[in-house]
Amino acid sequence: MKINIILGGVGGQGILSIASIIGKAALSQGLYLKQSEVHGMSQRGGDVMSNLRLSSDEIFSDLIPEGQADIIIGVEPMEALRHLKFLKPDGWLVTNSRPFLNIENYTDRELIYSEINKIKHHVLIDADKIASEIGNSKVSNVVMLGAATPFLKIDENIIIDAINSIFSNKGKNLVDINIKGLKAGILEAQKMMVD
């Protein structure tokens, strides 16, 4: 088992929380893991990415080579596209459709969506809307994790366990809403896969 994941977003959107949940789940399965993060200046509203690699065998590089990512998870559509050259030919691009508008020259969003739609395997969902509907707009990142879960090769329940152990000291409400967000994301991805 070997899986390379690239997470893309804007500083502050919570891609590191997604990475730490997957990381916790992977470690509980006895997998090797490497997760490269961005700290420092870019976290101030710039584009940020994280490389997450899971494997049953030893992993060498902290960085994923170009053309080798099995999944790109975008919590923002333009940020998902930013790392396209890393995607495998049969890899999945799973992204939130909600733009994060903090630059003046943001591309017309229909153009962004059409670029995403050109990718053979993709999931494009409005995670912010789904998160609001279930009662907390802040869990949109976990909704995106849910949308990527069918492609992770890690069982849904193991990810739920990881959420439990990461958020348990912050109260039951937070654990519940995150699990709800995850499940909503999974459901949405399954719908798109059927389509």
Partner: peptide, 29 residues
């Protein structure tokens, strides 16, 4: 990175998707 070193060792880097032109730079602020 692995690609820079791969190139030096004459490995072909197979990229299926080119980076999209609609991606704008997003500097920190």
């Amino acid at each position: 990175n692995p690609n820079i070193i791969g190139k030096v060792l004459n490995f072909d880097i197979i990229v299926s998707y080119e980076n999209s032109a609609s991606v704008m730079s997003r500097p920190p602020a």
